[in-house]
Write a protein that binds this DNA or RNA. Structure first.
Lengths: 248, 248
DNA sequence: ACCTGAACACCGTTCAAGT
DNA sequence: ACCTGAACACCGTTCAAGT
């Protein structure tokens, strides 16, 4: 059922001995571990196996090391998860379609930011709930933007485009809550599709007997219109923001 | 720092012996445990101490019983959490302001439903993230409605009010994603406020040096306009739904 | 400098046994 | 019928010790 991650998938010990005998650094294997490698491995693990299976001991095994070694690079499991969130959110910095500040108006700027974070979410469906629900360091670091870098970009960007302070703050709250709701549900529906297949379709149908409307509309409810509805809701949000901008 | 829940807060053993000697059931204590009592205790624990501290062993201790006894009433920890979600969502059934089907139009109906679920969220800020992110049993059971009962009510209600099948489905998706985004963020901001106070305000201020806009707008970002913005976004959503209704 | 062994205090869960 | 003791296989985390 669940394929366990096997230890030693990074064969650190294969040619390590020869290098040690020669007293040199090995060619490329046996890189001595680093915070970055630890966090990367955690992200890969969550992407592939989901969050529940991630333990310090397993992660160590994957990296060819005992669990205790990880504490050299990360203060603990909680902070590791925080680092995972940070790593994922910062992927947006490498997205060429996301820009730091408005170049063609604030609507284009926010369109790019929204689509950038959506791409991140869809790349990491198993990890995104972490981005959504990990307790934020400060009340103004609202998911799913979360990082000071992007919050700053948002605030400066809209300020430069003529939003007043209160309008910027209100726009920020509306923007984040739209993204969070939409993306969390889109990502959840991804996971639900390839979920446990131990329930046959007929069983579902019969257990739905007391709920005829759900049963009848099941095909319509199953339909995935995420992409379209994201565009439309975003468009609507931007229109509301235009009103916010011109208040007072 | 963390006040541990003490065992025996239900003093089941106090007058239990006398009753046993008389061969009768004790007056009111020593109720023999039940699924409902277990789930209730879990809800209370999460409300008071948060999810991370909840373990089968601790919950058993609170109920005056060994952890293994709980498995008579609940298949396991995961299913216990599912039951917690169900219990919380079903609180809405007892809310006199929430109605089963439209009596004064679909807008009034949805207003009541939305405010009902918001009250639930605000009553259980520590448990609501569970409602939001526990994997749903089926893709059409979208959080935060989640229960067949409420989904059915939504579908029937809007159908009766003249929404076509596709319009109902689209409205359902829009309604849930609005609720999820808004309420998750509102509830998170509640938790963040009384969060760890080990960071002094000045420290935050100085670490914010590279992010002048965040620093400058911090007061505005900290402001809580949740209630007002909930009303306004809901109003906007209902207007969009009116358009969805009249499509085609 | 980097990793490990052994240990501690916890988990969820099982099963045969107690009353 | 209901609960427990003992056990199993796991956790996160610490610290002194190894190389």
């Amino acid at each position: 059922m669940s394929d366990e991650p096997r230890a030693g998938s990074t064969p650190a010990h294969v040619d390590g001995d020869a290098a040690i005998i020669r007293g040199e650094e090995p060619p490329s294997a046996r890189v001595p571990l680093s915070r970055e490698r630890v966090v990367d491995a955690a992200v890969v693990f969550i992407d592939e196996h989901g969050l529940p299976g991630l333990s310090m001991r397993r992660l160590g095994a994957i990296l060819g090391v005992e669990a205790m070694s990880l504490y050299r690079y990360v203060p603990g499991r909680e902070q590791l998860l925080d680092a995972v969130v940070e790593r994922i959110v910062d992927e947006m910095a490498a997205d060429p379609d996301v820009i730091d500040r408005p170049e063609h108006g604030w609507q284009d700027f926010l369109q790019r930011l929204a689509h950038g974070i959506r791409r991140v979410a869809l790349r990491h469906p198993n990890a995104f709930p972490l981005v959504a629900s990990r307790p934020a360091e400060a009340p103004w670091l609202r998911p799913p933007l979360r990082s000071l870098r992007w919050v700053e970009a948002f605030l400066v960007g809209l300020g430069d485009e003529g939003f007043g302070d209160d309008a910027v703050a209100e726009a920020y709250r509306a923007f984040t809550s739209f993204l969070l709701g939409h993306l969390l549900l889109e990502v959840a529906s991804l996971g639900a599709d390839l979920g446990p297949l131990d329930v046959v379709e007929e069983d579902v149908d019969s257990s739905l007997a007391p709920y005829p409307a759900v049963r009848r509309l099941k095909p319509a409810l199953r339909q995935d219109h995420s992409a379209m509805e994201f565009e439309e809701s975003l468009e609507n949000l931007l229109q509301r923001m235009a009103l916010i901008k011109d208040e007072r």
